[in-house]
Design a protein around this nucleic acid. Structure first.
Length: 279
DNA sequence: CACAGCACCTGCCCGC
DNA sequence: TGCGGGCAGGTGCTGT
């Protein structure tokens, strides 16, 4: 469930199901799920046992559960294919189950992750954020983010704008789908250099991104297949509203020109070659 | 230091 | 049918 709206859908589900629950046991079943933990899977299991979940929080694509051992949290990153699923004890086994929480009401939370790019990490909160998330900027939907300041910092960079949008240290939560969508909305070419875009247009781009993500969240996020689902296994519907991502050869909703697809940073960019001119 | 490239995985789809 | 190549929503490490 990669980008901000999809992770927020998961966070809300975890908040509903987990806050106030005691973790009776935790199991980490695949070593890659614990690869960032110095003490490995055993440390995660030991530190989670008997903890009560006090909140579910998020910054960008990083989400974490705070615990009653104050100033400690379980950080969850979903990577490209991670899911957090609420299950009953009798649920059918899942091939890609990487870690599991057993809760005091008999239910379980499964971390299922086909490609193993996701992980769990337990550690200290510093200023309310897990230490591993300290380098991640505030996200586009944060009430504390200063979009004018972000636009000003983008304006100083002699780098292609899409590359900067994907850098989670300037503004976070944006991935390949929402980068393409917000650039389409703001009519900016993904490879336009940021320092050659006016501060006003950069601010408009960020505001467009916030608006697209808000609409996506209202639709339950973007799902193309069963890999991207909420804690109950349900898909979101924003894929039906995409104007650029995955729309190559389809007519642009603004001008009718076929949407182009181009290789970029070992993935793809989708844009309208007429509405989004590179200057 | 900022930046670019690629490594890390599994599965699916396509063409040969 | 099988195999190789390309592709997928993301970091995060390394070399320049």
């Amino acid at each position: 469930m990669p980008e901000l709206p999809e992770v927020e859908v998961v966070r809300r589900g975890l908040e509903t199901h987990l806050v106030g629950r005691r973790i009776s046991a935790a199991r980490v079943l695949h070593p890659r799920a614990a690869r960032h933990q110095v003490g490995g899977a055993g440390e995660i299991e030991a530190r989670l046992a008997d903890q009560v979940v006090t909140a579910a929080r998020r910054r960008g694509k990083f989400l974490w559960l705070t615990l009653d051992d104050a100033d400690t949290a379980l950080l969850v990153h979903l990577g490209m294919s991670g899911q957090m699923l609420v299950k009953s004890a009798e649920a059918e086994p899942s091939r890609h189950l990487r870690a599991r929480l057993d809760l005091d009401d008999g239910s379980q939370v499964w971390f299922v992750d086909q490609r193993t790019f996701g992980y769990w990490w337990i550690g200290d909160l510093i200023d309310g954020v897990p230490a591993r998330v300290a380098h991640i900027a505030r996200d586009l939907l944060s009430s504390e983010v200063d979009l004018k300041a972000v636009a000003a910092s983008l304006k100083t960079r002699p780098t292609e704008i899409k590359r900067l949008l994907l850098n989670q240290e300037l503004i976070s939560g944006i991935g390949n789908i929402y980068a393409d969508e917000m650039l389409w909305e703001a009519q900016i070419h993904p490879r336009q250099r940021a320092d050659r875009i006016s501060a006003a247009r950069l601010l408009g781009l960020l505001e467009a991104g916030r608006e697209v993500m808000t609409r996506a969240l209202a639709q339950g996020g973007t799902s193309f297949d069963a890999l991207y689902v909420n804690v109950n296994g349900d898909s979101g519907y924003f894929a039906l509203s995409l104007n650029a991502y995955g729309q190559q050869d389809e007519p642009c909703a603004r001008c009718g020109t076929p949407i182009a697809r181009e290789h970029f940073m070992n993935r793809s960019s989708h844009f309208c070659p007429r509405c989004q001119r590179r200057r």
